[in-house]
């Protein structure tokens, strides 16, 4: 089942196309890693797809009324704003906002707290946590929304290795339930190991789209990132390691 369809999605800023005719379909069961260098348009794509940004073309989610959209897709923004010292459990419970008040709220919040291992922190004011702990609380908030599609902008940036793996496994598990996750990522190794599909962006366009071993081949890496890398299927699963910078102009 398609959870998100983008047709010729375009965003222009000051007359320059930041996003240029994106076509994309996200179906249940997929954990999609959105890759690309800084400024490739990853954040713009995610925000426009959710209708948070004025855009041209069509997004199936942006076309929905705000309340309905919030029950179909949850979003974790790149900026990790927490304005007030809310206790962690109440911050996670904010994810239930689109559902009104329902008896499903408390169990959903508990599941989200358990999934991210936040039990020891649940009564602590969220603003007093470390950056990584705050990110985990915000991911739990997104999980508590219990939507078919999760959209996350650099969810694992700043997390310790164990927490990164944990989050990637949680996302893969969600895809395993027939839901879907669309997350922008900078860690290509993590993406190669956990995602079912990768989308490589460059200059506001999709440069490659497919399973990890197909997208992360040497030609794409050289053209988009200007790097070389080592990528192999091992008995421990796919392993990807960036090696060197190709273009000598870069410092």
């Amino acid at each position: 089942m398609s959870l998100l369809t983008l047709q010729k999605l375009t965003v222009a800023r000051h007359g320059r196309a930041v996003l240029n005719g994106i076509d994309l379909t996200v179906t249940g069961g997929e954990f999609i890693g959105l890759l690309g260098p800084n400024g490739a348009g990853k954040t713009t794509l995610l925000r426009a797809a959710l209708g948070l940004l004025a855009h041209g073309g069509h997004s199936s989610l942006a076309a929905l009324p705000a309340g309905e959209r919030a029950r179909r897709a949850a979003f974790m923004a790149q900026g990790r704003d927490i304005a007030w010292p809310l206790p962690v459990e109440r911050l996670v419970a904010l994810g239930r906002t689109p559902h009104g008040r329902s008896p499903a709220d408390a169990p959903a919040v508990e599941r989200a707290i358990a999934a991210l291992g936040l039990e020891p922190l649940r009564h602590r004011p969220a603003t007093e946590l470390s950056g990584g702990e705050q990110a985990r609380a915000l991911i739990a908030r997104m999980l508590a929304q219990e939507t078919p599609l999760l959209v996350a902008d650099e969810p694992v940036a700043g997390l310790d290795p164990a927490a990164q793996i944990k989050v990637m496994q949680v996302f893969a598990g969600i895809a395993g339930q027939g839901r879907a996750v669309l997350a922008s990522l900078h860690d290509l190794g993590m993406a190669a190991r956990h995602c079912t599909r990768l989308i490589l962006m460059d200059g506001g366009r999709i440069a490659a789209d497919g399973p990890p071993e197909q997208v992360l081949h040497a030609g794409n890496l050289a053209r988009v990132f200007g790097i070389t890398a080592w990528f192999a299927a091992t008995p421990q699963g796919p392993v990807f390691q960036p090696l060197d910078i190709l273009t000598k102009e870069l410092p």
Binding site: R47, L50, L52, A66, G67, R69, A70, R71, A73, A74, F75, M76, A77, G79, D81, I82, A83, W84, L86, L91, L94, G95, T97, P98, L138, R141, Q145, V151
Partner: peptide, 15 residues
């Protein structure tokens, strides 16, 4: 309450 998490996140929650 939703705005605690910023304008984008609040909007994504239907605000």
């Amino acid at each position: 309450d939703a705005l605690t998490l910023g304008e984008d996140t609040a909007a994504s929650m239907g605000l």
